[in-house]
């Protein structure tokens, strides 16, 4: 199995784990972390699949580079929203007790 295919499979598993983390009840902060794991998985699939035949593909690599920057912006926005909710990491329910 090529390195690309291996990491594409890892990416698929990471995406699934992250999606489960987002779906399960939890504090907003943990869901934001889970969302980031999910995003990393999707990016790994993108580059891994393109390079599964070996070799380097600069097109998905450039796309992923912008994806990482967008992900951090989305995380910052989500954290600002979570603060607005009042309880960014409340361990009880989903934190809408403001």
């Amino acid at each position: 199995m090529s390195t690309g295919m291996l990491f594409a499979l890892v990416g698929a598993l990471l995406f699934t784990m992250g999606a489960a983390g987002v779906a399960l009840p939890g504090a907003p902060l943990r869901r934001i972390v889970a969302f980031n794991v999910m995003g990393s998985g999707a990016l790994l699939v993108l580059v891994g699949l393109a390079q599964r035949g070996g070799g380097v593909d600069p097109v998905p690599q450039a796309m992923v580079l912008t994806g990482i920057v967008v992900a951090v912006a989305a995380t910052a926005l989500a954290l600002a929203l979570a603060r607005r909710l009042g309880a960014p990491g409340a361990r009880a329910a989903s934190g809408d007790d403001d």
């Binding site: 698929a12 598993l13 699934t16 489960a20 779906a23």
Partner: peptide
């Protein structure tokens, strides 16, 4: 999640 992972890996 298990079902989804199975289908996704199968597809890949």
């Amino acid at each position: 999640a298990l079902l989804f992972a199975g289908v996704l890996i199968g597809a890949l």
